[in-house]
Amino acid sequence: MVDAAGALIAQVWAVRHGVETGASLRFAALSQGMHAAGAPATLVELASRASSDEVRHAGHCADILRSHGADVPPPETRLLFFGPRDLPPEQRLTYEVVAQSCISETESMATLVTLLDAASDGHLRNVLQELARDEVQHARLGWAYLAWAKNRLDLSFLSPFLPAIAAAATGDDLFQPSAPGADDPALLTAGVVPKNERRRIYLETLDAVVIPGFEEFRIDTGPLRRWADGKRPIVVGSDPSASS
């Protein structure tokens, strides 16, 4: 693989491979944590199944990388948690479930829906459909967990953390200027959402799914809304239709 577009496509699928392998480790730990917290067996099993799903998804990412002649990176082997370690145990578990399922997996579903609409290659489409079927459950898990946790825990503690979780979910460069070729609509056929589209989709999904979701649980979304508002000028500035 020598051209810039090919390198970009390989980079995206390599990152996804890492996201999937890391998520597998996290879901396994979240399943155990939910069990220890006394959560319903349905949630414990959903998280356990999600861990297995992510291993299979990583295999698909690896196959796609090989099909592009790219190297498959080593799997993520570190079990990473992101919340403050001094949170009480139930808050810490809730932070991690929210970060994984309510934000990351929910936002990833919007990406998958976009890619499914654009997929013309039969194999890629089949892979995306399989991933989307699974990711629906992975995202639901978080909202179901909040529905269970709301009578056991004051969920208001989440509010000030939401901007940092939302920022982390975008990686370190989504709202940075696009590299040459990164906004090319042709990337969609290779299962990659152009960067300017990813920015727009991310904020629209926050507005229409994630924020209303937290508000279902009476969690103050003011800080998250302000974070999103701060990113909107970047999205407008990178939208080619905005200047016409």
Partner: peptide, 11 residues
Amino acid sequence: PPTGYNGPTIW
């Protein structure tokens, strides 16, 4: 996690 990462990244 690396400094500044407060949650998992999206797909």
